Simulated assay, not measured.
Amino acid sequence: MKNLTNKIIKKLTCVLFISTLAFSAWAISLDEAKKQGLVGEMSNGYLGLVVDNAEAKSLVMSVNEKRKSIYMNLARQNKITMEQVTALAGKKAFAKTQSGHFIQNSTGQWVKK
């Protein structure tokens, strides 16, 4: 099981890197949205809306649509559930979140890392 977890973590790292490149058109917007505190990372591996803002909401929807597709492929390839993939992705996203950016805690509140 540990070997499978390590394999998935390596794939998630690669996928997150690739998805960052894939989002190059939004990279500045995503980074700026995080810097402005409009969006944050959630424990389920998806981006969340911290402040109700139409532009940020659109960005969240676009990013999450891409992430969901990636997560579904990882789940299929590794014969695990989406819940397992998103839990690992959430941990990885929290670890990579910069200090001062928002993450959603276990009670659903947005807190700065």
Rank of each mutant, 00 (worst) to 15 (best):
K2R: 09
K2C: 14
L4D: 08
L4N: 06
T5V: 06
T5R: 12
T5W: 14
I8Y: 00
I8F: 00
I8H: 00
I8P: 00
I9Q: 15
I9V: 15
L12Q: 04
T13W: 00
C14I: 01
L16V: 02
I18T: 09
T20E: 02
L21Q: 09
L21K: 10
S24R: 06
A25K: 03
W26D: 06
D31P: 03
E32A: 05
K34W: 00
K34D: 01
Q36G: 00
Q36C: 01
Q36N: 11
G37M: 04
G37F: 01
G37Y: 01
G37T: 03
L38N: 13
L38P: 02
L38G: 04
V39R: 04
G40S: 07
G40I: 07
G40P: 09
E41S: 13
M42I: 02
M42C: 05
S43D: 06
N44D: 14
N44E: 09
N44C: 03
G45T: 07
Y46F: 13
Y46P: 05
Y46H: 15
L47Y: 04
G48V: 02
G48F: 04
L49M: 05
L49V: 03
V51E: 15
D52Y: 12
N53Q: 02
N53E: 07
N53R: 13
N53L: 08
A54H: 06
A54S: 15
A54E: 13
A54R: 12
E55A: 15
A56N: 08
S58G: 10
S58W: 05
L59S: 07
V60D: 09
M61H: 13
V63F: 14
N64Q: 15
E65C: 14
R67C: 00
K68Y: 13
K68R: 14
S69E: 06
S69V: 01
I70V: 05
I70M: 10
M72R: 05
M72Q: 11
A75Y: 03
A75M: 04
Q77R: 10
Q77G: 08
N78M: 08
K79I: 14
T81P: 12
M82V: 03
M82W: 04
M82T: 03
M82C: 01
M82R: 04
E83A: 13
Q84D: 09
T86F: 00
T86Q: 03
L88W: 11
A89P: 04
G90S: 03
G90K: 07
K92I: 02
A93H: 02
F94N: 11
F94Q: 08
K96F: 09
K96S: 09
K96C: 15
T97F: 09
T97Y: 10
T97S: 10
Q98Y: 04
Q98T: 02
Q98H: 07
S99D: 05
F102D: 08
I103P: 12
I103H: 06
Q104H: 10
Q104I: 02
Q104N: 10
G108D: 06
G108Y: 03
Q109G: 14
Q109D: 15
K113R: 13
K113I: 15
